[in-house]
Nucleic acid binder design. Structure first.
Length: 137
DNA sequence: GCCAACGTTGGC
DNA sequence: GCCAACGTTGGC
């Protein structure tokens, strides 16, 4: 099983919106970036991901699970863009802030730190464990 | 709200 | 195919 990170601006689509969808989940649509799309193509059902709030909050606030592999993005006719479906699994008890991640010497290689603009990112097993611990899981 | 960084677009 | 111009993102 692989781990990922999904980044969203809470004003556009936040953790509360994701929770509201329950087990039905929701398309992670609107991605218009090849790197991000390629990561989504690599995802498998059951993969887990962090749900990250950008902008004001800048923290990992939830855990999601991939429930559908890559399929055409319903928000565009452009066949280049695809998306996966994800559902909320659990809320991180203590959101892990970007400051915390940057301050941890074990997490300096995270894509979140190195390429903050990428909206869908891979997370290593080690990084997953560390961030989960920081979040109180 | 500003601006740096990045990715994409389009003219040549 | 290169590269300048532009738009967008997201940290500060």
């Amino acid at each position: 099983m692989a781990y990922w990170l999904f980044k969203s601006e809470p004003n556009t689509w936040g953790w509360q919106d994701q929770i509201a969808k329950g087990d039905v989940g929701e398309e992670w649509d609107g991605v218009r970036n090849y790197q991000a799309r390629n990561f989504m193509r690599a995802m498998e059902i059951g993969d887990r991901g962090f749900f990250y709030h950008s902008m004001k909050e800048k923290s990992v606030v939830g855990i999601v699970e991939v429930i559908a592999t890559a399929h055409p993005d319903s928000t565009t006719d452009d066949p280049r863009w695809e998306c996966v479906d994800i559902k909320a699994v659990e809320t991180v008890p203590t959101p892990v802030t970007l400051d915390q991640i940057k301050a941890d010497p074990r997490l300096t290689e995270m894509v979140l730190v190195k390429n903050s603009r990428l909206s869908v990112q891979p997370v290593t097993n080690e990084e997953w464990q560390i961030v989960c611990t920081l979040g109180g899981l």
